[in-house]
Design a protein around this nucleic acid. Structure first.
Lengths: 245, 245
DNA sequence: CGCGATTTGTGCACCTCTTCACAAGCGCCT
DNA sequence: AGGCGCTTGTGAAGAGGTGCACAAATCGCG
């Protein structure tokens, strides 16, 4: 990954890439920009304005410009951003220039789907190993990969140079799996099990809980229903209902 | 990711639940508290302190107390919170007292897994319909439900009183499906397709993109790798991380 | 019956993120 | 060459979220 340093980069210049210390919120949006940019590139666009890209990514254009400015200004005033250049930049910042190998633990319902999901491969991730604790599942072949027993993790981790672990086991098994992943040196975990994982400092865990998303939607649905139940009037008694205190 | 209008709603005394106008960040955490509370209830706990619950939910105890205070103080000083009472309260606020029916559109790889995922049912959601645009998939039975053609959506929506739509189609089909869902009155959508949906005001969309989560992890992994590459100092600074979203 | 241990609820200060608004920069057209 | 319109990059203001620290409230015990 070729690199250059960023203007105004505070830190001591490392040999490798300057780490601009991106705001977390920005990092979370970069992948979305990347997706939108790929779509634009596929449709033949060579440049794009912040307005256009912001639209495609579903965000505010000022926010997008500020996000991009954090990684060092690759736009041209009056013109916009060069699509391919920006793609390269973002991929570089996200560390996607190298293909990362993923170990997927838990080949149940969800694990099966994840193993077959092509959205990973198409974005630079390789599912390098499928593991499960259930002996009856070991040996099964999914999408060209054979399921191995989770105890083989140490060997697999080295052979495939795993850099990310995905947990798709039932909740009760998740913590043990996380411990095993950490033990073999994995420092990034994506957890689909509905439970909190405790991991040592320096290990990143991201959690995806499908049911939680539905519950959040449920809240808004509930709220909308209550609002429409009251016709326009409403405001009679404002304020109060101070329950607390 | 989701849009909402802020009606700046003047407080109104509802007949049933008071709508406390919760901060969005709080709403996003309530489901996690709920999960932790159920776990506590299952293990026989009748009360729990904010410290204990915060631990189980993976958050700061002060944050938890503030969150709970927003829905009206159901704790007892010196004692803690009554587990079952708190469960009832949170479920009421989230609108989970009624079972919500979900229509799942797109029965591919991921859709299959979602259809079979029992985490939905166990938390008050009923997958009431499976739909797909591919005629070769129509008629297939998954987990006791028969896949119907997406054009039957209008009828299905009424029959099953659908309140939430889940999109698990490929990206190119997602917008059309969203339009159809909106057309039949669905105002809450959970989108697994990697694309931005445009919907009318008043419709909530939440997006889950599995590849994006991996890319965020990739960034941190990349960053950690660069740090350890640094000479001398290194170990001094450790990264830690709180989980996002 | 009062005291101390415990735990909630919250005011406050800090910090991050968002959004506006505008100057600076760039290309194009005349 | 010069001006004009368009777009980026950013300072500053505002909104929202977080965590500390402490007063208020409650229970149990002597």
């Amino acid at each position: 990954m070729s690199q250059h340093r960023h203007p105004g980069a505070p830190g001591r210049a490392g040999a490798v890439p300057a780490l601009p210390d991106l705001p977390e919120a920005t990092v979370a949006r970069l992948p979305e920009y990347l997706r939108a940019l790929h779509a634009l590139a596929d449709t033949g666009h060579e440049t794009v304005s912040s307005e256009g890209l912001a639209n495609a990514a579903g965000v505010n254009s000022a926010k997008l410009r500020k996000d991009l400015s954090h990684l060092g200004s690759y736009g041209t005033r009056g013109v916009g951003y060069d699509v391919t250049l920006l793609i390269d930049q973002i991929e570089s910042v996200l560390g996607l220039t190298q293909c990362r190998s993923v170990a997927l633990v838990g080949v149940g319902n969800l694990g099966h789907a994840l193993a077959g999901y092509d959205g990973f491969a198409s974005r630079g991730f390789r599912i390098a190993a499928l593991l499960d604790a259930d002996p009856s599942r070991v040996g099964e072949e999914i999408n060209g990969l054979v399921v191995r027993h989770v105890d083989e993790l140490p060997r697999v981790a080295v052979e495939e140079s795993i850099s990310i672990g995905v947990i798709a086991t039932p909740a009760p098994a998740a913590q043990a799996v996380a411990d095993q992943l950490v033990a073999v040196g994995v420092t990034s975990i994506l957890n689909f099990a509905p439970c909190v994982l405790s991991v040592p400092e320096g290990v990143d865990v991201r959690k995806v809980d499908l049911a939680i998303e539905l519950q959040i939607l449920s809240f808004h649905e509930h709220r909308k229903a209550s609002l429409t139940a009251l016709p326009g009037g409403l405001a009679a008694t404002e304020t109060q209902e101070a329950i607390g205190t």
